[in-house]
């Protein structure tokens, strides 16, 4: 899932400072299950903004609603009227949700209420860790299902660096060395032979280095069939 956390209230207040009517839009998907931008969090933020603005002597009309998924057009159509009435829209979706709102409603001024952090999973209740960097060229089949791109600070492809000590990364004592984890797992599966294959420098063109990415599936597109 996409993991995010709410911006400090003061930062959000600065973003909506000039508006009299504000709409907070939560998202019912990833940011709901990481407790950053779901229905409950949208309600808490809207209430907090109302209280803070009233205490500041400049009461703002802050309402909230939540859509099932901010990153798909069809879920946004039903809230067009509420969007139209708001001077500023605070999106509690991830960065995709913010941009989807801005793109779908060009007349609306949309600001983010969250900092989108990473793609990861909850390792225990209340703790989320990064697991995927969306590099566009998955090598998990060579590394026992443990990603050195997302979980190694140096994104190394051929074993650990000298900063791996006692199974822990030198960057952060709470971060296990990804390559230690990979070694342990390959050893447990008797697949250490996979480490003998030297990996060439990674082609980063499928990642951010190649610019914004796009996937087109002709078999799924709703285009008129061309008759020859």
């Amino acid at each position: 899932m996409i993991v995010a956390e709410q911006k400090p209230l003061d930062e959000i207040r600065d973003l909506i400072a000039d508006a009299g009517k504000v709409l907070v839009v939560g998202c019912g998907t990833c940011v709901t299950v990481c407790f950053a931008g779901g229905e409950k969090e949208a309600g808490i933020l809207a209430t907090s903004l109302r209280m803070a603005s009233k205490l500041n002597g400049n009461a703002q009309d802050v309402t909230h609603l939540t859509v099932q998924r901010q990153c798909e057009w069809e879920y946004l159509d039903p809230i067009e009227e509420q969007i139209r009435q708001a001077e500023v829209v605070v999106s509690l979706g991830c960065g995709v949700g913010v941009q989807a709102l801005a793109e779908h409603f060009p007349q609306a001024w949309v600001v983010p209420g969250l900092n989108t952090s990473f793609m990861g999973l909850p390792t225990e209740q209340g703790v989320w860790e990064e697991r995927c960097a969306a590099c566009g060229s998955c090598i998990l089949g060579l590394t026992g299902g443990i990603c050195p791109i997302a979980r190694c600070a140096k994104q190394l492809l051929n074993g650990p660096c000298g900063g791996s000590q006692d199974g822990v990364c030198e960057v952060n004592a709470e971060t296990p060395c990804a390559w230690q984890l990979i070694y342990d797992r390959l050893k447990a599966h008797d697949r250490l032979d996979l480490l003998m294959e030297i990996q060439p420098p990674k082609d980063w063109s499928t990642s951010r280095d190649g610019g914004p990415r796009r996937i087109t599936r002709e078999d799924l597109r709703l285009v008129a069939e061309q008759v020859e």
Binding site: L9, D10, M51, A52, L55
Partner: peptide, 8 residues
């Protein structure tokens, strides 16, 4: 913590 940020 929220009250503190809100100003109460």
């Amino acid at each position: 913590d929220l009250l503190n940020q809100i100003g109460l």
